[in-house]
Simulated scan of single mutants.
Amino acid sequence: MDELIVDSRHCDEVVELLTDRLHVLPADHYRDADGVIGLTLVGPLDFAGYEPAARKQYADETDLTGMDLLFYDIGRRFADEHGFVPLLDRNTEDVLANPQHKGFGPAFAYDHVVPIPDTAAGEGVHIGVIDTAPTRHPDLPPSHVLTDTYFDPDETSKMVAGHGTFVAGLIRQKAPAAMIHMRAGLSSDTGRTSRWQLAKDIGAFVGDDIQILNLSLGFEDAEVPASTARALSRLSPAVFVVAAAGNDHTDRVWPGAFGSVLDVAFTGGETWSWINAAAPDDCPSAYLYGTFEDTPFTGYATWHGSSFASAFVTGSIAARMTTADMSAAEAYRSLTLDADSMVAALHA
């Protein structure tokens, strides 16, 4: 996907550079601006005629290619003219539910109802969730789960379509009285979304009254993703962000790897230095009704991965907030000191 994300304040100048001088952006290009996060998506880019000349121009300075070379080129020109480099990021479709290198682990059918406790744990706490759209399920009543859309599965649906339902069910098991605000940011067909869509979905919670944002998703990149960082920076400092650390990876998984985000692995899994906490991930939860990928489900499943450890922690924090009258950050610290919580701190 050859699209560029740029700081909206400098978009016009970047577009002029891309069209008139570097000739990588057609005159009939498209733009998608988001005023909340202050970013604009621009595309499509075409490197065919650009890259050979740029590689020759910068041969003595760098051996970068493709988008990396374009970023270098734009940065050099802006620095020479203005003394700064504008925010730039690439848009890719690599944001993944239950993030892991080797694809999704399967959900397994669970033949028993998983009761939602009849308690006030989580009362008054509002939790944001970006995931696949939830299905209609008795464990996810509209009185406690608000969503921008529902998913209605059919015989062609994949297991990943139940990811958001499973995550919301886990949160409700721990904090049944909390209010969950869901945004269907991940595709129910693939479990994926783009970095641009993720940034916009995070930005959609700006100004809302959520206290916790659960991101059971992620993507790998050796570089800090500037667009995700910008979106997170727009949230209130009081919003406690919990994210999945990834299951089978060799590099940092974003957005969990940001220092401002609680990065959660599953108990017994990888404990890289940037991971903050570990929690159980093998609890049964609400799921779809029907047969998917040749496996019949009756509304419940078991599943494995840091996505669900993240949801366990989110629900546990919400519950502790009300039972102990604490902020989200204070509740998390309290949980790590309580062996019965099963939430363990790993690294500072």
Rank of each mutant, 00 (worst) to 15 (best):
N91P: 03
I202D: 12
G290V: 03
P284V: 12
H112S: 14
S307R: 01
L288K: 03
Y300D: 02
D248T: 08
G66R: 08
H82F: 14
S341L: 04
Y150V: 00
W272D: 14
E330V: 01
A54H: 11
T149N: 06
A257W: 06
D208Y: 13
L64E: 15
L232F: 05
P44V: 01
I212N: 03
M326L: 15
R172A: 11
A309W: 00
L45V: 06
A345S: 14
A229M: 09
L186Y: 01
I74W: 01
T165L: 09
G256R: 06
V6W: 04
D80F: 05
Q57S: 10
G203D: 11
F166D: 04
T295D: 07
D28I: 05
T336V: 15
D325P: 01
I202Q: 11
V15S: 09
S143C: 08
R234T: 14
Q100D: 10
R9Y: 02
Y50L: 11
F240K: 01
H112M: 12
A319Q: 05
M67K: 07
D60C: 07
F240R: 01
E123H: 13
V253W: 08
M326N: 07
R9V: 10
T165G: 07
I127D: 05
D208P: 02
M67I: 14
L45C: 05
H181F: 06
A344V: 14
H144C: 08
I171L: 09
G49C: 03
D139Y: 04
E270Y: 12
A328Y: 02
F266L: 15
H23R: 13
E123F: 06
G75F: 04
V206K: 10
R76T: 14
A331C: 07
H144P: 03
P138F: 03
H304F: 13
H347S: 02
V15R: 07
D80T: 09
G75H: 06
D2H: 14
T119F: 11
E3S: 14
M326Y: 09
A244N: 00
W254N: 02
H112A: 14
T147S: 13
D60S: 15
